[in-house]
Simulated scan of single mutants.
Amino acid sequence: MDSDKPPVASRQRLFLALWPDDGVRRQLAAHAEQWRWPAGCMRYAPQDWHATLHFIGDVASEKVQSIATAAALPLQPFGLVFDQPRLWPRGLAVLCASEPPAALIRLHEALGQALGALDLALDPRPYVPHVTLARRAEAAIAPRVFAPVQWPVQCFALVLSTGLKAPRYRVLRQYR
């Protein structure tokens, strides 16, 4: 066995997501700094911010390539505005899009069909585009006035959840 290479896990935890560029990350950071965060809150690091399109979950490593291929769908660039800070159940602090653009909904649906064709289970809940800013944030206070985050979407990604504190996620493939 080659000791210079890390072992390949037999299962991988995957999701498809909009992955921000540096400009969007700066906007998200400016927004996050306007919240009042309670002690004990687990804030996400800027490199971990994303907007999930579909959570895929644990899959056998040999299926990753077929998922990557199935997700290679055309993307029509669109603008997305995150303008609704919210506290969700179980202590999630999120920034939501109050008016998801039709191009985002079409992308979500097309990716869902591609994943369904691979017999992958899809989340049955309605799709709510959001960026998770923190966990254990039940007592957080969202800003009342802030500049909405303007996200010019030009790509999405297949992402691996590493199970580590850092890096929490690793982009396996980007689709433009």
Rank of each mutant, 00 (worst) to 15 (best):
D2S: 00
D2Q: 00
D2G: 00
D4G: 01
D4C: 01
D4H: 01
P7Q: 00
P7S: 00
V8N: 01
A9T: 00
S10T: 02
R11L: 00
R11Q: 02
Q12C: 07
Q12D: 03
R13Q: 01
L14R: 05
A17P: 01
P20Q: 03
P20T: 05
D21S: 04
D21F: 02
D22E: 07
G23C: 04
V24C: 01
R25T: 07
Q27C: 00
E33S: 12
E33Y: 02
W35I: 10
R36F: 01
A39K: 07
G40Y: 03
G40M: 03
C41K: 11
Y44M: 02
A45H: 04
P46V: 02
P46L: 02
P46F: 01
P46H: 02
Q47A: 08
W49K: 01
H50I: 10
A51C: 11
F55M: 04
F55D: 05
D58E: 04
V59E: 13
V59A: 06
A60D: 14
S61W: 05
K63V: 08
V64F: 14
S66E: 05
A68W: 08
A68E: 15
A70K: 06
A70T: 11
A72I: 07
A72L: 06
L73I: 14
L73D: 10
L73R: 14
P74H: 09
P74N: 09
Q76I: 15
P77F: 08
L80T: 10
V81T: 15
V81P: 11
F82I: 12
D83F: 05
P85K: 07
P85V: 08
P85G: 10
R86F: 12
R86E: 15
R86S: 15
W88E: 15
R90Q: 15
G91K: 06
L92D: 02
V94Q: 05
L95A: 07
A97C: 12
E99V: 06
P100L: 06
P100G: 09
P100C: 10
P101S: 04
A102W: 11
A103H: 00
I105Q: 10
I105K: 09
L107K: 07
E109M: 05
E109N: 07
A110E: 04
G112M: 05
G112F: 05
G112K: 05
G116D: 06
A117Q: 14
A117S: 12
L118T: 12
D119G: 10
D119I: 09
A121I: 11
L122E: 05
L122D: 07
D123W: 12
R125Q: 13
V128F: 08
H130V: 14
H130Q: 13
V131C: 05
V131Q: 03
L133V: 10
L133G: 09
A134E: 12
R135P: 15
R135T: 14
R136N: 15
A137L: 11
E138M: 12
A140G: 12
A140T: 14
A142L: 13
V145Y: 10
F146L: 09
A147K: 12
A147N: 09
A147W: 04
Q150W: 10
W151E: 07
C155I: 03
C155K: 14
C155T: 13
F156H: 11
L158V: 11
L158N: 08
V159G: 03
T162M: 13
T162H: 13
G163K: 04
G163I: 07
K165M: 11
K165G: 12
A166K: 15
Y169Q: 12
R170V: 15
V171N: 05
V171Q: 04
Q174V: 14
Q174G: 09
Y175H: 08
Y175R: 08
R176Q: 13
